[in-house]
Nucleic acid binder design. Structure first.
Lengths: 119, 119
DNA sequence: CTGTATCCTTGGCGATACTG
DNA sequence: CAGTATCGCCAAGGATACAG
């Protein structure tokens, strides 16, 4: 119901920090993957679920909804016989792809360096 | 004490996903900022604290320690009269900077688009 | 097919105070 | 200066089952 915040929750909101602001968009659990798989073409709910194994529908639905609220993705309900929903990136979502791609690049390099997975 | 995990915790660990792997390194609360401020030169604990307002020493210390464990930063204790500690990026940490820079770029663009801060 | 409802767990994060 | 100790919090994430 009513938001009750007892303290001020982050006292100095760093309004001058594009990094922090942008990370807000990428910080969600499966967010980068969603953007990644939507970068070239719209995909449906179950397609994305299949693309990204290990996520439960509830969490995924919540994330998608959040992304929609943030203006990253667009949810289009297709008027087909079995209800079909298509997700695609907004302009803003498209703007994020370079960052994701950079991260993927680094990820690949890290794998080559065997730096990841040596947990 | 003993870790008790009742289920299997992420059934299919996506070992083939550089994106997810790389995000592990960037996901920490203040991580991107730390890398950002260390990208050109080593900095000391309190300098970083000053660079990144709003973080408590405990959290910051924990993050730095975690980053050190992950091989992102190096902690060097200077044998000075008042103990001084210098943090710098490892090779691996340097590898991450392009991703951070891309995120910053996008962040700037988002600010220009007035897409952030309209909460 | 595309989600919601419910319930649970965890650990990251934060504040304050204190120490070598 | 550079942290650690202790405590609390609570939101995000997850499992499973069910629904339109």
């Amino acid at each position: 119901m009513a938001v009750k915040r007892r303290k001020s929750r982050v006292p100095p909101p760093p309004s001058g920090c594009p990094l922090t602001a942008c990370m807000k968009f990428l910080g969600g659990a499966w967010t980068p993957n969603v953007i990644w798989y939507l970068r070239s073409e719209p995909r449906r709910f179950s397609e994305l679920m299949a693309d990204i194994p290990g996520v439960s529908p509830k969490v995924f639905s919540a994330r998608l909804k959040s992304l929609e609220k943030d203006g990253i993705v667009i949810r289009r309900v297709m008027p087909t016989s079995p209800p079909t929903v298509e997700y695609s990136l907004t302009n803003l979502g498209q703007e994020l792809t370079p960052a994701i791609e950079a991260i993927v690049q680094v990820g690949h390099k890290l794998k080559r360096m065997r730096a990841v997975g040596m947990e």
